[in-house]
Amino acid sequence: MLADKTSTTYVAGHRGLAGSAIWRRLEADGWTDLVGRSSKEVDLRDRDATRRLFDEIQPTTVVVAAARVGGILANDTYPAEFLSENLRIQVNLMDAALEHGVDRLLFLGSSCIYPRLAPQPIKEEYLLTGHLEQTNEAYAIAKIAGIIQVQSVRREYGKHWISAMPTNLYGPGDNFTAQTSHVLPALIRRYVEATESGAPEVVNWGSGSPLREFLHVDDLASAVSFLLEHYDDPSTINVGTGEDHSIRHIASLVAAAAGYAGETTWDTTRPDGTPRKLLDVTRLRELGWEPSVSLEAGIGATVDWYLEHRAQARS
């Protein structure tokens, strides 16, 4: 076994979309000593505060799910913040982990690390073989730096650190704010509000033609638990479904789940982003892991969650 389920395991970012799902899954899988701290308790951008945290909790295993994240608008509007904050969070966490002798660490990245026009589906070895998507290159560069740090620590210190690159995530606990959300939660909020207001039309960004792969966050959490026990390699590993759909189709599924009966139009003056971003998940499937939540069921459940929790959700 590569990870000890009874050891102190720190989940950085345990209140976020990915981190909260990972926490739930690890708990369900029998991890008995999980530790988390909210951003109000510890600012991971602060190097000294991060070191004091590690002095306090003395973790043996670390999951790095903490990050500043956002959709195309947020990434394009605040590139300096996305670069600086994510670099600081990652470096502080991994430096503190190394100083405290943490032997098992999983760094969670993003599929945006790959070139904008990478061959499809995207294999792990395509990293750093072409230009990034300009609208989120700052965030991508930060995540690439995290991958390199993981690989460097493995090579220099022999630690069993790994990195996993999930595709687009969605699910309960997502960010539904108008200015910073990703495409799927933005669509959910838009169609729910249009349904409730009786709006005759919903206008979405772009042409609707880009193809996107979506992974329910509970499936990501399942993969993280699996990888902590079964994966130990310097190469990053993709986490996804291996299937993609047009944004236009995704919008139609959201509209149906929200009960919206009006028209949908597309504002082609707005950017589409990367034309296609489908991960090759052959390596993960060969290890024995596959997702279990279908897109239609996952979207329906997320719409239901949003309707029930939107007063407390990030919206």
Rank of each mutant, 00 (worst) to 15 (best):
D4P: 03
S7I: 05
S7L: 02
T8Q: 11
T9G: 01
A12G: 13
A21P: 14
I22P: 14
W23G: 03
R24E: 15
E27F: 13
E27C: 10
E27I: 08
D29I: 06
W31P: 05
L34V: 11
V35P: 02
G36W: 04
G36P: 08
R37I: 10
V42D: 07
L44I: 12
T50M: 09
R52S: 09
E56P: 13
I57Y: 01
T61G: 08
T61F: 08
A66D: 05
A67N: 02
R68N: 07
V69K: 02
G70E: 01
L73V: 13
T77A: 11
P79I: 04
F82V: 01
F82R: 01
S84D: 03
R88D: 02
V91N: 13
V91C: 03
N92T: 12
L98N: 09
H100M: 06
L106Y: 00
L106H: 06
G109T: 11
I113T: 14
I113A: 09
P115C: 06
A118L: 07
P119M: 02
P119C: 04
Q120Y: 11
Q120D: 10
I122C: 07
I122K: 00
K123F: 09
E125K: 15
Y126N: 03
L127K: 11
L127N: 04
T129A: 03
G130M: 02
L132D: 00
L132I: 06
T135D: 13
N136M: 12
A138I: 06
Y139A: 05
A140N: 07
I144P: 14
G146S: 05
I148E: 07
S152W: 05
V153F: 01
V153P: 05
R155M: 12
Y157D: 09
G158Q: 11
K159N: 05
S163Q: 06
N168W: 12
N168H: 15
N168T: 14
Y170K: 06
G171T: 09
N175K: 10
N175A: 10
F176K: 00
Q179H: 13
S181G: 05
L187D: 08
R189N: 10
R190E: 14
A199N: 02
E201H: 04
S207M: 11
P210S: 00
L211R: 15
E213V: 08
E213L: 07
L215N: 11
A221M: 09
A223E: 02
S225L: 02
S225I: 04
S225K: 00
F226I: 07
F226C: 00
F226P: 04
H230L: 03
Y231N: 01
D232Q: 10
S235K: 15
I237K: 03
V239A: 08
G240A: 05
E243Y: 15
D244E: 15
H245K: 12
I247H: 10
R248K: 14
I250D: 07
L253H: 12
A255N: 12
A257P: 08
G259C: 06
G259K: 07
T265E: 09
T268H: 07
T269D: 15
D272W: 12
D272E: 12
G273Y: 05
P275H: 01
L279M: 02
L279D: 00
T282S: 15
L284Q: 01
R285K: 14
L287R: 01
V293G: 11
S294Q: 11
L295D: 13
I299C: 07
G300M: 05
G300A: 01
T302H: 04
V303C: 08
D304A: 15
E308M: 10
Q312M: 09
Q312C: 04
R314Y: 06
R314T: 11
S315N: 14
